[in-house]
Design a protein around this nucleic acid. Structure first.
Length: 179
DNA sequence: CCCTGATTCGC
DNA sequence: GCGAATCAGG
């Protein structure tokens, strides 16, 4: 992926809006957060420096000049993220609509802290802190300001935690029978 | 451990 | 110029 004018422009925009480097990288697609940060520096964009000026006491700069990286280093898989998230929001409208529908039908189950089932405790995550490992189950009205995501840990690459996974993947037939 | 940005330096 | 590796901090 190369830095086209459009991509640079978007980078500037998102960075100025305060999004984190990893979030920007996710939206641009095809780049790591390191790439974003590196680019930000090269563009001389204002970083997120600590005001005041104490920066960070003694920083030994870079320790070793001796073979930091082995030459037989194989590139990491990096998230094989096909940039499924186009531009704008992390979740497409379709995804939100579908999730929201299921939520309306099933969520009202109370947590009553007991036994093994139940995990309806959310971490009230903001959209900007969702990662590959956080449950992306939406909670609340997206139009409301108390809207957030579950955010509990989800196994491997699953978009949902184990609790919401079951709700999400129930065939509508079974759902109806349960109800 | 998760995340954040900052820096260095081989490519 | 690019960005992975690394560092430093929350």
């Amino acid at each position: 992926m190369n830095w086209t004018d459009e991509r640079v422009e978007k980078l500037k925009k998102l960075w100025s809006e305060g999004l984190s480097a990893s979030q920007i990288a996710a939206q641009l697609g095809g780049v790591s957060r390191n790439a974003v940060i590196g680019k930000v520096h090269r563009l001389n964009l204002p970083g997120r420096a600590k005001a005041g000026g104490t920066q960070t006491a003694s920083r030994p700069k870079r320790p070793a000049a001796a073979t930091p990286r082995p030459s037989n280093f194989a590139a990491r898989p990096v998230a094989a993220r096909p940039a499924a998230r186009s531009a704008g929001n992390a979740l497409t409208k379709e995804e939100i609509d579908a999730d929201f529908d299921m939520q309306s039908a099933q969520l009202p189950v109370p947590a009553n802290g007991n036994n093994g089932v139940v995990v309806p405790m959310s971490r009230k995550l903001e959209l900007t802190q969702l990662t590959e490992r956080t449950c992306k189950w939406p909670i609340g009205d997206p139009l409301n300001d108390d809207f957030h995501f579950c955010g509990n840990e989800s196994p491997d690459n699953s978009p949902y935690c184990t609790y919401h996974q079951r709700l999400a993947y129930q065939p509508s037939a079974e759902r109806r029978r349960m109800r």
